[in-house]
Design a protein around this nucleic acid. Structure first.
Length: 461
DNA sequence: TTAGGGTTAG
């Protein structure tokens, strides 16, 4: 008996390593070979396959393992259900996750703290913070012991839902009532959430608290603060953090590299970004989709569009699906290159592949059409767009000014202001100047005063 | 089997 148990354990370890490297066919073959020579698969074997199928194929494939498991006489346990609940959530199937939670009760499998943590996380992720909070209260009232992940999930979810003050109060109360001190993960969650909300004073206080606790910041802490600096225009400070990380000997992962490469591209420092990318390639890091998208963006900015398109094949060969970022980056590059026809063709290609029309791609197209002097065509795209933002209006108004259609630009800019959006100052000035020199002095005065009023309103708001 | 950082447009 012990012999079989030990052998099954070896079989499970082997199947697990195959699943992790996405070799599902080999994992299935190992299972068949194992049975043939008398190593009976157990619940852990099938749980391993659930995780393998969930990460490489998808929820349905993972769910089908549950039936195979029962047919083989193995009873699904809490790990089987937790893995499936999590997989359904990753595939945007929240109702399926909740269904599986119900099913657990019906078949007599008791949920554990992992089940509740996963559910809470999914409820926050899909915009249901009240329900996530109800799960937390349920945990407490039913004497299930929360763990660090439970508190961290609550803090993260509350911050992402915009309840920063409540998240901080929640953290303080877990410290007081449950003796939860919080570790580096908690502090990283707090720093990231507060950075996203622009509450830099509190970020500084949290960083100080981390230091006082004697906890060493890790690569995630640094990456988070660095991104925050770049996002708020503090490029020099961001680059200093990057140098500091190198000096301290941090091992850079794909997240850290992408965090620094993208702002370098944005700042027009393509040469430096390329050096950083080459460094990233030298480390042999496995490229995931975001890394590939960053590389595609870099190639586009270096003018290597052919190389950028070749990278799509590389992505697909690596077994990853390209996404809306991949294609939108290419549409923008084609527009900037003046290849408007190719950009429009690529947009059609995106639609055929099931990508919905997206704001960024339309904005790039409007900008490209205006730059190419096709203001009429740009206006057609503009009118068809269901959603517009300040980028849309800025490009369109700029295009109209270049075409000396100041009255139309005047009407658009007023709509934009009414909707509470801002335009680049240079574009606002161009419209006012254009109106004046074209003899529309009254409209120019009116617009100037409306712009002033809108800025006062925003300031007071 | 659960929680934290990275990608596109004016």
């Amino acid at each position: 008996m012990n012999h079989f148990r030990r052998s099954t354990r070896f079989l499970n370890v082997y199947i697990c390593s195959l699943c992790k490297s996405q070799q599902l066919e080999k994992a299935e073959a190992a299972l068949i070979d194992g049975i043939r020579i008398g190593y009976l698969p157990d619940t852990t074997t099938y749980n391993t396959l659930i995780v393998g199928y969930a990460s490489s194929v998808g929820f349905d494939a993972a769910y089908s393992i549950l039936h195979r498991m029962r047919e083989a006489g193995c009873r699904p346990d809490v790990v089987s259900y937790n893995s499936l609940i999590s997989s359904a959530g990753r595939c945007a199937l929240l109702s399926k996750s909740l269904e599986l939670f119900e099913q657990m009760h019906q078949v007599g499998v008791n949920p554990d703290i992992w089940t509740y943590n996963t559910l809470m996380n999914l409820l926050f992720k899909y915009g249901k913070p009240e329900e996530a909070n109800r799960v937390f209260c349920w945990i407490l009232s039913n004497n299930v012991a929360p763990c660090a992940t439970t508190y961290n999930t609550m803090i993260n979810g509350l911050l992402k839902a915009g309840y920063a003050s409540y998240a901080l109060r929640f953290f303080r109360s877990t410290q007081r009532c449950f003796g939860f001190t919080g570790g580096i993960v908690t502090y990283n969650i707090l720093i990231n959430g507060l950075c996203e909300l622009g509450r830099f004073g509190e970020v500084k206080r949290v960083l100080k608290e981390l230091d006082e606790l004697g906890t060493t910041p890790n690569v995630i802490t640094y990456t988070t603060v660095m991104k925050c600096c770049f996002r708020h225009g503090k490029f020099q400070q961001g680059l200093e953090i990057f140098s500091d990380m190198k000096a301290k000997g941090f091992t850079f992962d794909a997240y850290a590299y992408c965090t620094v490469i993208s702002p370098l591209i944005k700042m027009g420092m393509a040469k430096e970004a390329n050096e950083c990318m080459e460094q990233m390639l030298r480390t042999g890091i496995r490229f995931d989709l975001v890394s590939y998208n960053t590389k595609i963006n870099l190639y586009c900015k270096l003018g290597n569009l052919e190389g950028a398109f070749r990278l799509i094949d590389e992505i697909e060969k690596s077994g990853t699906e390209s996404d809306v970022y991949t294609h939108t980056t290419l549409v923008d590059a084609l527009c900037k290159n003046g290849d408007i026809d190719k950009a429009q063709l690529h947009l059609k290609h995106m639609e055929m592949r099931g990508f919905k029309s997206n704001l960024v791609a339309c904005n790039s197209l409007i900008h490209g059409l205006c730059q190419a002097g096709q203001v009429g065509n740009a206006m057609k795209v503009f009118k068809k767009m269901e959603m517009k933002d300040s980028f849309t209006y800025t490009s369109m108004v700029q295009g109209l000014c270049n075409a000396r259609e100041f009255l139309t630009a005047y009407k658009l800019i007023r709509t934009c202001l009414r909707e509470g959006m801002t335009l680049l100052a240079s574009v606002r000035r161009a419209v006012i100047f254009g109106l004046r020199v074209s003899g529309y002095k009254r409209q120019a005065r009116k617009l100037k005063s409306e712009i002033r009023m809108a800025s006062v309103y925003r300031y007071e708001g």
